[in-house]
Design a protein around this nucleic acid. Structure first.
Lengths: 367, 367
DNA sequence: GCGCTCGATGTTTACGCAAACATCAGGTGG
DNA sequence: CCACCTGATGTTTGCGTAAACATCGAGCGC
């Protein structure tokens, strides 16, 4: 009872107090080790190890004794020692800057869940700003970090720019990139999604489709814009000039104010739902009805999209699948120690809601 | 020079291919250790350790030699060995279920940043569902995890319910809870924010304020609801019945449909911005203008709130500060090995936008 | 100049675990 | 009945680091 650590010990009830029964001096606040368990159970520490790792070759009787001793001492394997011995940490590092975009967050969440299922922990490497220095910093922190592999949710050119040497055995998987030739890449099928958006709008009868693109530096934005352009060209339409935002609703609003004044703009494909939200607001303020006067398609299908005014037609991204595939492929790379490259794409799905409709050929704005 | 691992393969350009120049057997892909560096530099490994940790007592000359050797071998301290020796991992665990709410994500991000600044890594412990079993599972994974302390972003009653014993030296800090008597709690000043919302609306001249509350199980929701109730009562108003949602925009919409039909409902305080979004949609569909007929106040100030229709008046939460304080207090607890308890509250700030206005005493819906 | 201190460096050890190897008892087949 | 095997268990060893202790040479006061 003199050990004082009873309080913090149990979150909730449980095995409280085992510590306090210990006979060792009070300052010994160190966890019980295998040796301690072995002593109490009257076996060798190796046997404890075998039980701890679920190996065969231990009598049921012995196993029970060891388990009892473990419980009594509140034994927990020391992961540092384990990692040192085994040469692996069972931990994945995830590098991303700012969790401010839905996509990154959802992907991260899926990664964490998949990793947990595989017995891996996930360590977060935040990068404050998308600058070379910051990325380099994250990687140097990473260098001495306890991870077996790394998943990078980031524009890969920043990664290239930071000429940092990773420990040679650390595998890397990249999200949001087209550098499949140099890395293993898992990503949403940006191009397919964009084409679906364009085709949906053209199919409704719109002459052409405007594009509210993401920021310049983003590969995702670039690919969505490229595919939009290609789809229009393939359909024999003239792509209007690209309007750029920065993913934020605010930027969508600003861009939307410009678009709202153009009578020839009857359909807009926004590169993400946030910008679409801003766009809707701008159109509404300028008296352009959606979808009567203007149809709008977003990208991402954030949970709120169905509550926009009007509910937003958008491309659903399967972030869970992206995360799952990231973990799967990085683990595969680790185990095969292969250097496989290539890109895995996860398809999108068009979710039709109320923000798209055929154009009003003779609406107040038309002619 | 014969030691092989000169070039720990590079991410990005740089030292690529150095591996292949190595003369030792290819399978030797193990990182250089302190001993290797020591050998190359012609010093003892202890001196390497001293340089590595920036300790005094090393000649400038020697230091340079060691640093050169480190660089040549691409030496990186092995964090497992370091952790084993030092008895600490320099890692914080964060337990949360689903990163689906803005608040949790933003807090997590702030925690990661603050932790990085302190030289700590952050390991994510995802909990799939808010059930006892899941929480218990997360904690048992945690038990053998390489963390020095834990921050829980979760309703604490789930934590209580999971009768799990943490390693005694692992400190816990909790977000979103009122259990300051048992844990160290850092949280947004939910009550203060709610009172500000109510006072703002009453100040505009509304007779009373309706409340669109969060789900039953949530402490944050409970506290916001309680404070709303108290503020109304203090002002001598009769609180209308509570309307409940589940934080989602969809639930806000459903609740809003009911509210929209009540002529006596001229002001609503929604417990978060997402629900406010759904509420706005419902009111709009039913022809109730905001803020003309109904004023709406949200909570959180998510980035999109300024792009709602109309831009939402809401309570700004300082998640960055919450995260920072979490890290600060958990580290303090670790260092002092204290068992300090108590609650730290971070104030909110009312952001007035366009969704609130004085009531129209003689609008179409009034009398 | 002698003994002393002090700063720079080397040597030993242990952290906790698990692979590799060693041991040992009991059974089996010739 | 002995050589051999098999399955359960114990012993040794080393992972990479850093604390604790040991050493060693130079400078300094008397």
């Amino acid at each position: 009872m003199e050990t004082a650590d009873k309080g913090p010990a149990g979150v909730g009830g449980g095995t409280h107090g085992a510590q306090s029964r210990a006979r060792t001096p009070a300052r010994t606040r160190t966890q019980a080790s295998m040796a301690d368990v072995a002593r109490l159970a009257g076996v060798s520490s190796q046997t404890v190890s075998r039980v701890s790792n679920g190996y065969a070759g231990v009598t049921e009787e012995t196993r029970r004794q060891v388990l009892a001793a473990m419980k009594e001492l509140g034994y927990r394997p020391n992961s540092a020692a384990r990692a040192l011995k085994r040469g692996e940490f069972r931990t994945l590092g995830v590098i991303t800057f700012s969790l401010s975009t839905t996509g990154n967050v959802r992907t991260l969440e899926a990664i964490a869940n998949s990793a947990a299922r595989e017995g891996y922990a996930v360590t977060l490497l935040p990068v404050a700003a998308p600058t070379q220095d910051e990325v380099r910093g994250a990687f140097s922190r990473l260098e001495e970090l306890a991870v077996d592999a790394v998943i990078v949710i980031m524009e890969v050119h920043l990664l290239d720019a930071a000429t940092i040497a990773l420990p040679p055995h650390v595998q890397v998987v990249v999200v949001d990139s087209d550098a499949g030739d140099r890395y293993t890449v898992v990503d949403t099928d940006q191009a397919g999604g964009s084409r679906a958006a364009v085709r949906h709008l053209l199919g409704l009868g719109h002459d052409t489709v405007w594009h509210l693109a993401g920021p310049e530096g983003s590969f995702a934005a670039q690919r969505r814009a490229d595919a939009w352009h290609a789809a229009l060209t393939e359909a024999g339409r003239t792509p209007p000039p690209v309007v750029r935002g920065d993913w934020s609703a605010e930027s969508g609003y600003r861009a939307g104010l410009g678009l709202a004044d153009r009578a020839d703009c009857t359909a807009v494909f926004a590169a993400n739902d946030q910008m679409a939200l801003g766009l809707l607001r701008a159109l509404h303020e300028r008296g352009r009805r959606v979808p009567g006067d203007v149809s709008v398609v977003g990208f991402d299908d954030i949970p709120e999209a169905s509550s926009f005014l009007p509910p937003l037609t958008t491309l659903h991204q399967d972030f869970a699948e992206v995360g799952r595939l990231c973990v799967e492929s990085v683990l595969r790379k680790m185990r095969h120690t292969g250097t496989e490259r290539g890109t895995t794409l996860v398809p999108t799905r068009l979710v039709e809601r109320a923000s798209t409709a055929p154009p009003l050929r003779n609406g107040p704005w038309r002619s």
